[in-house]
Nucleic acid binder design. Structure first.
Length: 411
RNA sequence: GGCGACGUGGCCGAGUGGCUAGGCAGAGGUCUGCAAAACCUCGUACACCGGUUCAAAUCCGGUCGUCGCCUCCA
């Protein structure tokens, strides 16, 4: 409702007109596309995804309450503005001060009392796309009120974590705080987790510069797990610069973990039910501890990844030894990978899937490996290499081990 | 101009007063039919200029640079 472009046009209305669609069809298309991307990146869906246009009464009620408490005023034109002078803490999140906000930039032709006052309700011109009846005439909600009204409805007057991007800290997050806290007198959110900006090859990603990479584009080029690994390899507050060099490095780092993980799963198939190697459990516990400490330190995911890399080196060393390791300890390693790299960081998939589930494909692959082993024994390396290349083409990588066995994994 | 984030070895990126971050790339080695994977060894980096301190990437002051915001875009 009123996502205006620089030209003053309504973004959704413009798109809808160009495509001969209902505005809500446009909204629905982008919403679905967004969820597709998030699903692909293994981002969990929210329990509630409220829409501003579905919460007009709540926003009107909140605006009315702010007027009653003297935090907002109605203008001749039928607009309602929040009076920032009644909330002296305005700017506390981004470190701005009201007296500095007056600045050079004087507001032109406005009924605002203070330049930093912001709209809670706007009157609508007849041609405006979406408008609703209100105590102040036909109009639509201001651009910050929806967040406060909806979060208070579903999460209460105070909630734990407010996400978002650093670029919206001012003015948007400040306005949310002002509206909500002026009304309730309670803290709006306990923690703010705001992410740094995203650039590409060092410059701003924008359609006009033609350097835009969508999530769908990125997924065509890199595995979802590698993209997650890339994002998590920097702290959430730091700026992220997307580049092929960085993505490729991230993919290589991610594959290192994945290869180690798959090797453990592979070994589990033939491991004895013995307690061989059980001393490693204490080592695993250390890594779990170190991982937790990193995550407890303001989600230090780069540090957490470093812990997994360290763990992988030690696991590889363990598996390189000639002594066999019992299935129970391999299982413990595997479940730690799933817990830390899977459940927490989300870049180790639950199931490793080619076309069929890997487990189902087993007998066929095992047979080919057997044939190839026979060929290698007869020094028929052209056949052996042909089998390896063919499997490689369908995503299965064979690696010969020193003891004569062949380990296979998914690429 | 104001506010904020950031500036670490070839690249990505942790680290907030003394102690090896980690990954990628690169070099050498072990292993190996080849390949792949793995393991071992190798890099004395912290934008710049001053200052504090026995000791600074880490604290203080200043400078420069990058990005974001300062708009009725949420």
């Amino acid at each position: 409702m009123g996502h205006l472009l620089d030209t003053g046009e309504d973004r959704i209305l413009k798109k809808a007109g160009a495509l001969h669609l209902e505005p809500m069809e446009v909204v629905e298309t982008y919403t679905r596309s967004y969820f597709e991307d998030m699903d692909a990146l293994n981002v969990l869906r929210p329990d509630i995804s409220p829409r501003a246009s579905g919460h007009i009464p709540e926003q009107i009620a909140m605006t009315r309450a702010l007027i009653e408490k003297g935090h907002a005023y109605v203008t001749e034109a039928g607009d309602v503005y929040f009076d920032v002078t009644t909330f002296p803490e305005y700017g506390k999140l981004s470190g701005r001060r009201l007296d500095e906000l007056k600045g050079e930039r004087e507001i032109i032709a406005s009924e605002k009392r203070h330049p930093a006052d912001f709209a809670l309700w706007r009157h609508a011109e007849p041609e405006h796309l979406m408008q609703w009846d209100s105590p102040w005439g036909k109009g639509f909600p201001g651009w910050h009120i929806e967040c406060s009204a909806m979060s208070m409805k579903y999460l209460g007057e105070t909630f734990d974590i407010h996400g978002g991007g650093l670029e919206n800290q001012f003015p948007h997050n400040e306005c949310e705080i002002a509206q909500a806290e002026a009304l309730t007198g309670k803290p709006f959110a306990r923690y703010w987790i705001l992410t740094g900006s995203l650039t590409i090859n060092g410059e701003k990603m924008s359609k006009s510069l033609g350097n835009f990479v969508s999530v769908k584009d990125a997924l065509k080029q890199y595995p979802a797990g590698a993209i997650r690994y890339f994002i998590l390899s920097g702290h959430y507050r730091s700026p992220v610069d997307y580049s092929d060099e960085a993505l490729e490095a991230a993919q290589a780092g991610w594959e290192r973990l994945m290869i180690g993980y798959q090797r453990v799963r592979y070994e589990m198939k033939s491991a004895p039910e013995s307690d061989a190697g059980s001393g490693f459990e204490a080592v695993l516990e250390e890594y779990r501890q170190r991982f937790r400490e990193a995550m407890d330190d303001d989600f230090n995911t780069p540090q957490a990844i470093a812990v997994l890399q360290d763990m992988t080196r030690e696991v590889n060393t363990l598996l390189d030894q000639s002594e066999t390791v019992g299935r129970p300890i391999l299982g413990a390693i595997e479940s730690l990978y799933r817990e830390l790299g899977g459940q927490v960081l989300g870049f180790i998939p639950d199931r490793l899937v080619i076309r069929a589930d890997l487990e189902e494909a087993d007998p066929l692959i095992e047979l080919l490996i057997k044939i190839r082993a026979e060929a290698r024994k007869n020094r028929d390396f052209s056949l052996a290499d042909a089998i390896r290349d063919a499997l490689n083409r369908v995503g299965i990588v064979l690696e010969d081990r020193p003891d004569g066995t062949t380990f296979y994994r998914l690429r």
